[in-house]
Design a protein around this nucleic acid. Structure first.
Lengths: 351, 351
DNA sequence: TGTTAGCACTCTTGCGCTGAGAGTGCTAAT
DNA sequence: ATTAGCACTCTCAGCGCAAGAGTGCTAACA
């Protein structure tokens, strides 16, 4: 897809998004020119709007109305036009202040983090307890049974063993299966589910290997997801005002759904904050919603996810930096907590 | 308030409530007669409806519409007309089946209970972890400081000590304060917050004693409420369809609010299921909602609360018996769990 | 006296119409 | 390339109107 937006088009798209986020009303050419005192005429803006419309960044709800950003529009905005945004110092202080109030345990930290995020974002928030690194692939064995049925035995680092059956398109000999397993073992040793999927293109054209990789990754993901036990939410009420965000409550409520979203999102290797706009086509429930997620904690060692969920029409700069800020704070707590626990480990439990 | 409803009036009220619960539409005299094949004319029914309207059990949304039950109407219905309702055997089996699937730990039991309740009630559910008995009053001391300011020191069974300041209407001597404290100590020793409030009429006319009693009870309640740590919810989505129940989500979300409702409700000494209709004037958020609560567990020893929250217009018989049924099941688990823990207590913890 | 039939009255609801307003797309001029 | 002008489209709020539902009242009836 050609990305050639002129500077002026980018400017206009940016202003459209900002204006719409602020007012919630469809924005027209005239409004835009007046509001931001552009030194071009509404007609010129109209032409550009038509282009942006055609490129799929804007839509009209009906012919005689202004335009509003599409999901792609928001994405372009967030990725290229938003720039770095720092939470106002005032807000930072407020947040830090709340965290500094008392010496708390991990559970209370999390509850507090959820509360703070919900308040500053005007949306809902979720936070999962820090937990050990995601499961990693160690070894796979493929065993022909009869016909097109194959038994897959998957061994994970840490010693877990999973079994799965898979059905092939056509029967294959054990030799071919073993070769495939061998190849996977060599290639994926020590990888997480997300890393495997990221590298799946390696097996372009080799259907068996690709299929098995996907199955393995899914199985690992399920094992990962099961570990999400403690989840704290807050601000769910904030989702109720908005018609579009209502069904997003399902995602927060059903732990399997939430685990699914979180695991697919936060584990892509990219560190830092990620923004999922409109469910990216993968989650119907997140249509009209934006999900801002970040990992926190000791990367790969003991880490959890932390997210804000709100309508697509939300203050992105503010919320993204809020998530980042709180994630940083929580990370340092995890570190403290972790260190402390390690030191106390041989003391045993009271109670 | 005179309660003299004639038998026919009761019958009509009952049918009104049932019909409205079923259809959700205001019910008129004609519909009522036709639907239930009454052997009186619509005009007669109209007269009775007018009476019920005047007594506050029914309202009209507008002149030319049928009537719907008021909160009082629902209450009358639940208390006197509903009778004992048993969950259909089919449902009982389904519920039991789900609980018998696997051997789980307490956390999973609770999660399951919440899920089951949400599903069968079509509403939201909450369940709190079983916890030790409510705090009990041991001793109070009132110490004059200066002017109208008095320091209250409250000692609870179990050793907790709480301090509170209170401001009197007029200064009093230490002697008078000590006498009051003495009286309270004699009278309330070993009582829970709810029991104290229930007996407060004892101090009719003795403002100081009554005031202190209230303060003490509140302080104890706060201590009780703080113990609500583990809360499981489910079915919150079910509240979103209904306009009136939306704000009830706040109650489920804010633990302080929830703790408040639960503690005031479930601790009144009455065992069994309690039905709070329309917030009973005490909780604005529960307007248009009904909260069905029950304690479960070993009464006074290790017990939690379990509730269904839905619109006022809900299937009462069904939901009440569902709550009772699940509460019974959970009680037996608590017993098992408790016994098991006691037996293992001296073994120490693994992990 | 309690019950019933009849009837006028009230109020909501849905429908169709209309005019105002906003914003667009196109064309021709700069 | 930009702009002014203009016809066009579509929503939305307001209005009136007729249908429908349900009531309250009165007078007749058992």
């Amino acid at each position: 897809m050609p990305e050639g937006l002129s500077e002026r088009q980018e400017q206009i798209l940016g202003l459209m998004v900002r204006a719409y986020i602020e007012t919630g009303q469809p924005v027209g050419s005239k409004t835009l020119v007046e509001q931001f005192q552009l030194d071009v005429s509404p007609a010129t803006v109209r032409n550009e709007l038509a282009v942006l419309d055609e490129l799929g960044y804007l839509v009209q709800l009906h012919t005689s109305a202004g335009r509003i950003p599409t999901e792609s529009g928001y994405r372009y905005f967030v990725q290229r036009l938003l720039g770095e945004f720092e939470l106002p110092v005032r807000e930072q202080q407020m947040i830090r202040h709340q965290f500094h109030q008392a010496r708390l345990d991990m559970e209370q930290w999390m509850r507090l983090a959820a509360a703070v995020l919900a308040r500053t974002s005007q949306g809902a928030s979720v936070i999962t307890a820090p937990r050990p690194r995601p499961n990693r692939f160690k070894h796979v064995e493929l065993i022909a049974t009869q016909g097109r049925l194959v038994l897959m035995i998957l061994v994970l680092y840490g010693g877990d063993v999973k079994q799965q059956m898979l059905t092939l398109a056509e029967p294959l000999e054990q030799e071919r299966l073993s070769a495939a397993a061998e190849r996977l073992n060599r290639f994926f040793e020590g990888r997480s589910a997300a890393e495997m999927i990221a590298r799946i293109s390696q097996f372009e054209g080799q259907d068996l290997e690709a299929d098995v990789t996907r199955l393995v990754a899914d199985t690992i993901r399920m094992a990962d997801a099961r570990d999400i036990s403690d989840v704290y939410r807050d601000g769910v009420v904030n989702l109720l005002d908005d018609e579009g965000t209502r069904q997003a409550v399902r995602v927060l409520e059903e732990r399997t759904l939430l685990a699914d979203v979180l695991s697919q999102v936060s584990d892509t290797g990219t560190s830092g904050v990620q923004v999922i706009i409109g469910g990216e086509g993968r989650w119907e429930e997140l249509k009209d919603c934006t999900f801002i997620v970040s990992r926190y904690g000791a990367e790969g060692d003991l880490s959890g996810e932390l997210a804000v969920l709100g309508p697509t029409r939300m203050p992105y700069g503010r919320n993204i930096s809020a998530v980042r800020y709180v994630a940083d704070i929580m990370s340092s707590f995890v570190f403290d907590y972790y260190v402390e626990r390690s030191l106390l480990a041989d003391r045993g439990d009271d109670q």
